[in-house]
């Protein structure tokens, strides 16, 4: 597996985790828990943005992997 595909895989996993966290943020009955999930979902967004940028950089450096 190339680095590029590995990073993309991690990115996908984290996107899934963020979606789960958002769901919990909505259905959780406790106000405090809601807040924690919302806050961490936003934090995770930052990480996702960075990783997406990294994937773009990798594709720019090695265009042969683009689309894989």
């Amino acid at each position: 597996m190339t680095t590029h595909s590995k990073v993309r895989q991690t990115l996908a996993c984290l996107e899934g985790a963020k979606a789960t966290m958002d769901v919990y943020g909505e259905i959780s009955q406790d106000e405090q828990a809601r807040k924690i999930f919302h806050r961490n979902s936003q934090k995770l967004d930052l990480v996702l943005d960075r990783l997406k940028k990294r994937v773009r950089d990798l594709e720019f450096e090695e265009p042969q992997f683009k689309g894989f």
Partner: peptide
């Protein structure tokens, strides 16, 4: 548990 594991894995 899965969510926690995913985060740890990442």
């Amino acid at each position: 548990q899965l969510l926690l594991t995913t985060l740890e894995q990442a």
